[in-house]
């Protein structure tokens, strides 16, 4: 019961912080809200008993990506948003579409619920082991070897790309 309450709280806070990211004018504040949102999402992951994923979420998102973004904001000196949010007609249309799509998708998801999704009769033991590192590590280097290696190439490409774009030309 307590756990449910805590889950609701975490979910609500995640939503609130996410909304703040989208509406705050000050770019730095926005980024800080984003950090909070990432932390709270990690908390939600915990309720799924996926401790490792929660840790990754904190380390990669809140730790790496967001620091990166905040660093960039500081460097570009963009603390205050260049302009207020003006709703041009296209943007209003975009909001209206989002407001339509959101309930529509929820409605669609509720229809004849997914089959595999309903088969989730998980034994408690498996449930507890599931989030643990060994299990994941095991498959990561066997079944998922190829995408794993490809991700490493991808990270290389990210480095090359960022350098190629950001560096000044020699000549």
């Amino acid at each position: 019961m307590l756990e449910s309450m805590l889950l609701y709280l975490a979910a609500a806070l995640t939503l609130v912080t996410s909304v703040m990211v989208a509406v705050t004018r000050n770019t730095v504040h926005s980024a800080l809200w984003m950090v909070a949102s990432c932390f709270l999402l990690a908390v939600v992951f915990l309720f799924l008993r996926l401790q490792f994923m929660a840790a990754l979420q904190v380390i990669i998102y809140a730790g790496a990506v967001m620091m990166f973004i905040i660093f960039a904001i500081m460097m570009l000196n963009l603390r205050v948003n260049p302009g207020r949010i003006q709703l041009r007609s296209t943007k209003t249309a975009g909001l209206v579409l989002v407001l339509f799509l959101f309930p529509a998708l929820l409605l669609l998801l509720g229809m004849g619920r997914g089959i595999a999704a309903l088969q989730g009769q998980v034994s408690l033991r498996a449930l507890e082991q599931f989030g643990e590192v060994p299990l994941l590590a095991n498959v990561m280097f066997s079944d998922y070897l190829l995408p794993f290696e490809l991700v490493s190439i991808l990270l290389t490409v990210g480095v090359i790309g960022a350098v190629a774009l950001a560096k000044k030309r020699k000549d």
Binding site: L107, L108, L109, G110, M111, G112, R113, G114, I115, A116, A117, Q119
Partner: peptide, 26 residues
Amino acid sequence: GATGTMDLLTMTEFIRSNPEVLSSGL
């Protein structure tokens, strides 16, 4: 979520044996 797998061939197999999945909203 609907088919329980990311593998295309397994997914095909799953759809074949559970055609009702085709009409699920998910």
